[in-house]
């Protein structure tokens, strides 16, 4: 009897089989968790006030081209994670076939079933977050990133959006963190429950660590939004007329 079938090209059009595709999502996910940890560590300078936080920002920016390389690498990892996850989701939907279940009482944990939903929400948050802070109007606050961040967080709408997004991130990590070790085959038999517990605690530790920042800004934030230049001029003119 022959042992193996003759070699055939892989399916899916991507030239990658299912486990390799999942491995890519797992490895990029691990890298993104690594980024989250360093990002959170840096952000804790926010509690140290303007000097500490702006000093940290200045030290990061002093890295110059190295920082740009790191940022491009991070963006590439992020895009790879998102694109591959979307591709897998599309394939998985197709695998159900033409007719779905009329009644479906799925016994898995909810965060594992809604990874694409939580993932897309987190990705949308990241876009708005980068736009608002990295490319935000820092010059309006005398170049102080601290003032910009605290001012944004003092706005309840922004703070609640950030807090909500961090809860979504927590649910994403609830499944994503332990699941990546399963995909990489790094979980020993009978140790899965323990790995899952540790990863869930660490994942929520990261998410809640971030969540504290907008909460801190909201509770301590009395800073008013600086008036736009046009409005300032208008006020000056009105006073001059009086």
């Amino acid at each position: 009897m022959a042992t193996t079938s003759s070699p055939k090209p892989s399916v899916g059009g991507s030239g990658m089989n299912s486990i390799l595709k999942k491995t890519l999502v797992a490895l990029t996910g691990l890298a993104l968790i690594g980024f989250l940890v360093t990002h959170l560590a840096g952000n804790l300078f926010l509690f140290g006030g303007s000097t500490a936080f702006d000093g940290y920002a200045a030290r990061l920016e002093a890295m110059g081209p190295l920082l740009i390389v790191a940022e491009i690498g991070l963006a590439a990892i992020f895009v790879a994670h998102v694109v591959m996850a979307i591709k897998l989701t599309v394939e998985n939907k197709a695998a159900r076939g033409p007719q779905g279940y009329a009644v479906n009482d799925n016994q898995s944990e909810a965060p594992s079933r809604f990874m694409i939903v939580s993932g897309v929400l987190v990705a949308l948050f990241v876009i708005l977050h980068v736009k608002g802070f990295k490319f935000g109007p820092r010059e309006e606050f005398g170049g102080s990133l601290y003032a910009l961040v605290m001012n944004e967080f003092a706005n309840p709408g922004v703070a609640i959006f950030y807090i909500f997004s961090m809860l979504i991130l927590g649910t994403h990590l609830t499944h994503g963190f332990w699941s990546l070790f399963q995909t990489l085959g790094l979980i020993k038999p009978e140790k899965r429950r323990k790995v899952k517990q540790i990863c869930t605690v660490l994942g929520w530790g990261i998410a809640l660590g971030f969540l504290v920042l907008p909460l801190f800004g909201l509770l301590s934030g009395k800073k008013r939004t600086p008036l736009p230049d046009g409005v300032k001029e208008l006020i000056q003119k009105t006073e001059a007329v009086r």
Binding site: T3, T4, S5, K8, S10, V11, G12, N17, S18, I19, K21, K22, L88, E91, N92, A94, A95, R96, N106, Q107, S108, E109, S112, R113, M115, H175, W178, S179, Q182, T183
Partner: peptide
């Protein structure tokens, strides 16, 4: 080594989806 590669490849070709470790 040969077995696992061949079985996974056949699994993919049959049109099954990708495992996302949901545990269902």
């Amino acid at each position: 080594r040969k077995r696992v590669k061949s079985m996974v490849q056949t699994m993919d070709e049959a049109g099954f989806g990708n495992c996302t470790n949901t545990g269902a």
